[in-house]
């Protein structure tokens, strides 16, 4: 079994044709500033450590960093917070995205085997547990049902100035995730958040566990 952190998981998913937010590992502030200059602000800075799975809770995620000075401060503060947990913790940098937050997951049920989950991100999944499941692999019809089923479905029609999520594109995305999970034997996977902006869907964070040997 192999655990893939954000950077590796995204590389893996990109290779499978899934849209990910390009993410770079950076070891020093200098490197971070350089990458950010290249990506363009605003950016997101995250901790990258095997010891820190829940990055936000450890203070390991800062979003919406709008310039070099802010990045400098965010970097040193984050380093202070996470070094006590993992002295060797690295960091990653990615463009800051905006859009409707979605969550997609794969898990392995003791009775049913591979299962795909879909829901809206943020409080919808954390507090309201507004998610729906299907057995992997799913068909287009299942994906469409899943999208219509979540209670927060209305939010997909556009909120807070975000354009409506293109449900056709979302259904295709879900089927693709299911197919990848199926063919590449992904045991567990968290894609949260996935940002939806009209037709565009981008995986902003990912982690996964795979069965070795494929």
């Amino acid at each position: 079994m192999s655990q893939l952190g954000e950077v590796e998981a995204k590389a893996f998913l990109a290779n499978e044709g899934l849209p990910v937010n390009p993410t770079y590992e950076v070891e020093s502030l200098g490197e971070a500033l350089e990458k950010a200059g290249f990506l363009g602000y605003p950016v997101v800075l995250k901790v990258s450590s095997e010891k820190i799975i829940h990055k936000s809770e450890a203070g390991g995620v800062v979003t919406g960093i709008s310039g070099p000075q802010e990045l400098e401060r965010a970097f040193s503060e984050m380093a202070e917070r996470v070094r006590p947990i993992d002295p060797n913790a690295a960091f990653s940098l990615q463009p800051h995205l905006r859009g409707i937050e979605l969550a997609v997951g794969i898990s392995t049920d003791p009775s049913f085997g591979q299962v795909i989950m879909f829901g809206l991100g943020g409080i919808w999944i954390e507090v309201l547990k507004d998610v729906t499941f299907r057995l992997v692999p799913i068909e287009d019809r299942d994906a469409r049902q899943m999208i219509e089923e979540v209670k927060g479905e209305k939010l997909l029609r556009g909120i807070r100035g975000y354009p409506a999520v293109n449900k056709e594109a979302l259904a295709k995305f879900l089927v693709r995730v299911s197919d990848v999970a199926h063919s590449r034997r992904i045991q567990e996977m968290d894609l949260n958040p996935v940002f939806a902006m009209g037709e565009r869907l981008v995986i902003a964070d990912a982690r996964m566990v795979r069965v070795e040997g494929r």
Binding site: D109, P110, S111, F112, V115, V131, T132, F133, R134, L135, I138, D142, Q145, M146, E149
Partner: peptide, 15 residues
Amino acid sequence: TLAGSKPVYSGAFKQ
């Protein structure tokens, strides 16, 4: 038998 995760069963029934 463990009753198992209800949401997963519900999804499987629909499918």
